[in-house]
Design a protein around this nucleic acid. Structure first.
Lengths: 142, 142
DNA sequence: CCTTTTACTTATCATTTGATAACTAAATCA
DNA sequence: TGATTTAGTTATCAAATGATAAGTAAAAGG
């Protein structure tokens, strides 16, 4: 196996993933939030409850900037902060009702685009896609 | 095949791809250029020669902003503009010698991280990864 | 030939994002 | 108990990015 060729294949693959992700998600987010805020909400959606520090780590943002953006999301009533009774420095963050509604709409939008994209795939294609995702997830994108 | 489950798998997969891409590429780019400029250079690298309009389309940037960033890259002697003798409105853009050097370094950096990531993969693993990439590229991320 | 369209540029402005210093309050540690 | 570390905040500034208006010059179309 030529690792150099595999590397080049990976480069064009990741480019495609980014492009398709952009196609699937464009216009999915509400205009009332910025791209960075959307990314944060997406992360909270799949990982809640999370602390500010975790968001900071995973989104590669500094604590002050993360704090600022969360404050804005909080002012827009999209998230809730719950302080940890065990450790009163910590704040657990989760989506509010409004935030859930917004993210449900966004995900529904993305999902419908995804379904459109795979509408012509056969049962076998879907199985292949499914196991290819598993393989790459465990062996390359762990 | 449950398409809903496949969609959720795709969501977590793309998240992983983005995270790993970030890990592989972090610190790869020179500090003398901005992230957006790096993306443009990356696109030029794999697609050259390209026109300004193509960059604008593919990078989802407006023409004025694309023009501005290309001007900056040109001032840094990283790219060259060659006007098309057929159509003198068009400009073909490609990397300069300096630009090639910079991108070679960046790619070498990313490649070495990639090699490190797959160092423990067996010959069979690599074959599996290879065909999984092919499947997803043709059936999902086309 | 004159109008329209295409490809790109210049200038300007607002917003977003990133970086840093200085802070509070709570927990941990020695 | 006093020093240090951890979690998060506030304020401020600079830089990067996005959006828009108004322009040039060449090509294409009628």
């Amino acid at each position: 196996m030529d690792k150099k060729a595999l590397f080049l294949k990976l480069v064009s693959f990741t480019t495609s993933v980014h492009r398709v992700t952009h196609e699937l998600t464009q216009n999915a987010k509400s205009d009332s939030i910025t791209p960075v805020q959307y990314n944060i909400l997406e992360y909270i959606t799949v990982s809640q409850p999370v602390t500010l520090s975790e968001i900071s780590d995973c989104q590669h943002m500094s604590m002050p900037n993360t704090s600022r953006e969360l404050k804005k999301l909080s002012e827009k009533n999209l998230i809730e902060k719950i302080s940890d009774p065990e450790d009163r420095r910590k704040q657990y963050i989760r989506l509010s009702k409004d935030g859930e509604t917004m993210m449900n709409e966004a995900f529904a939008h993305v999902e419908s685009r995804f379904l459109h994209r795979i509408q012509n795939a056969s049962k076998e294609d879907l199985e292949e896609i499914n196991s290819a995702l598993d393989i790459l997830q465990t062996k390359l994108f762990f």
